[in-house]
C-alpha cells in the first residue's frame, strides 16, 4: 500500500517536474559549434599564426633588428640580415619554429617596425614536421590586418619621438 501511494505520488507530483526540465532544455539553443563547417569568431587580440607586414609600396617592414628574437621566451625565431640595392637592411632569412612557439605575442610587442603580427588562424595540424617552420614566403602573404590598441599607442609614441613610417 505504501509503495502504491508513493508511486502515485511520484507519477503525479515528481515525474512531471523531470519531464518539464527536459522539455525546457529541448527548446533551448544547442551549444554545439558545427566546427569544421562553421568557425568560432576569435577575439580581435587573439594570437594565432604569424604574419609579416609590408609597407604600402610593397617593401618589407622587417629590418632584421633581432628584437623579436631577443624578446622571444621560447627562442623560436631565427633570422639572417642582408642589405638591398638601396642599402636598407632586410631579413634574408626569417624563420619561426611553430612547434617551439608558445604564441605569447612578445615578438609583436617588441617589434619597432610593426612588421610581425599574430593573426587569427589556429589550425596548424600537419603530419609533415618541416611544414611547421614558418618561412618568409609563408608569412609575407596578404592577410586581414587586425587593429591592435597597443599598436595605435606605440604609433602615437613613435610620432611623438619623431620616428615616422615611410
Amino acid at each position: 500500500m505504501k509503495d502504491i501511494l508513493r508511486a502515485i505520488g511520484n507519477v503525479f507530483l515528481k515525474m512531471p517536474k523531470g519531464f518539464f526540465v527536459t522539455l525546457r532544455h529541448f527548446f533551448k539553443k544547442p551549444v554545439t559549434l558545427d566546427y569544421p563547417r562553421k568557425k568560432k569568431p576569435m577575439t580581435p587580440r587573439y594570437k594565432g599564426r604569424h604574419y609579416l607586414e609590408r609597407y604600402d609600396d610593397g617593401t618589407e617592414r622587417c629590418v632584421c633588428c633581432g628584437l623579436c628574437a631577443a624578446a622571444c621566451p621560447s627562442d623560436c625565431i631565427y633570422m639572417e640580415p642582408a642589405e638591398n640595392e638601396k642599402g636598407e637592411r632586410y631579413a634574408k632569412i626569417y624563420e619561426i619554429n611553430q612547434i617551439r612557439c608558445i604564441y605569447c605575442g612578445f615578438c609583436e610587442e617588441a617589434c619597432p617596425e610593426e612588421a610581425i603580427f599574430l593573426g587569427q588562424e589556429y589550425e596548424f595540424s600537419n603530419s609533415d614536421l618541416d611544414s611547421f617552420i614558418m618561412t618568409k614566403d609563408k608569412m609575407l602573404v596578404p592577410h586581414p590586418r587586425k587593429e591592435n590598441p597597443f599598436k595605435k599607442m606605440f604609433r602615437r609614441m613613435r610620432k611623438a619621438y619623431g620616428v615616422l613610417d615611410k
Binding site: T22, L23, H25, F26, K28, K29, P30, V31, T32, D34
Partner: peptide
C-alpha cells in the same frame, strides 16, 4: 535528434 536537443546538442547533421 530529440535526445541531442534535450542535452543541448544537435544530433546527426
Amino acid at each position: 535528434k530529440v535526445v541531442g536537443h534535450m542535452q543541448h546538442r544537435i544530433g546527426p547533421s
